[in-house]
Simulated scan of single mutants.
Amino acid sequence: MGLFKRATKPASEVRATADGELATMLLQGENMVEQLAKAHLTWGLGSADRWDLDQTTGLITWSFPDKVATAPAQILGSFSPTSGTWLWAWANQSILPELSRDALAVRDWAMANGQEALARAKVEADEQLASTLVALAVRITKARGFYRAPSGNSVVVITFGPVTLTAADGSTSTVAIEVG
């Protein structure tokens, strides 16, 4: 299963201790992830020649042969298939605090709603649990986009806002997607 595909097990099996509200949020998050993935394909997400994230400006950039796409970005966390762990951005010292606001929002929500397991800095995780964490985070933060960014032996999960497309001729357009 890909990191952003709907879980093959029902939400009740993904996390046996999940209460009804969390299970509902997981389903909503999975739906949001699916809708966002399809919507962002329209401008080419996932097919760029390269991507870059500038932590000082908070912008993610995707480069294509005929255009450049940029968006304000946040880092949710990273998944390492090798070590079988998920690390939230707020616990990663290599990430500037300004880029971990979405991850902090998830932690704050978890603490306020009795879901302390979602507030642990580092979690043992397989791909399915990482997908579950991402779906919940997308739902909690109401993200407008997310990107599964390959980074060495891990995958960095980035949320982003409206995308500005700049064509080779300098013309620009904005793609703002909202799902609910």
Rank of each mutant, 00 (worst) to 15 (best):
L26N: 07
T56C: 07
N153H: 06
G161H: 10
M25R: 11
L26V: 02
W43N: 12
V33S: 02
L165Q: 11
A69W: 11
G29V: 01
M25Y: 01
S12I: 03
A16C: 00
L59M: 08
E98C: 00
R15M: 09
P72R: 03
T159A: 07
T132H: 09
P81K: 10
S63V: 06
D19H: 01
R15A: 05
D126T: 04
P65H: 06
L36Q: 05
A143L: 03
D49R: 07
S12W: 02
T159F: 12
I140Y: 10
V179F: 04
A89M: 05
T82I: 10
V68Q: 15
L165E: 14
G180I: 04
L104K: 09
W109V: 13
A117G: 03
S94Q: 13
P10S: 03
A130N: 08
V179K: 05
P81Y: 12
T82V: 13
R144G: 15
I60Y: 05
M25H: 02
A16I: 01
I158D: 04
G46E: 03
S173W: 11
V179Q: 04
S173E: 14
S151R: 08
A39H: 14
T70R: 15
L36V: 06
G58P: 06
F160H: 15
T42Q: 15
P65L: 04
S78Y: 06
L3M: 12
P65W: 00
N31R: 15
R50T: 09
S151T: 01
A7H: 13
E98A: 10
Q74T: 14
E127A: 02
S47P: 01
E124T: 11
N92W: 07
A117E: 11
D19M: 00
D108I: 01
L59N: 11
L41Y: 06
P65Q: 06
A23Y: 01
K38M: 01
G29L: 00
D54V: 02
A23G: 11
A167R: 06
K142R: 15
L41C: 05
G29R: 04
V134I: 15
I60E: 10
D52E: 12
L76K: 02
A91R: 06
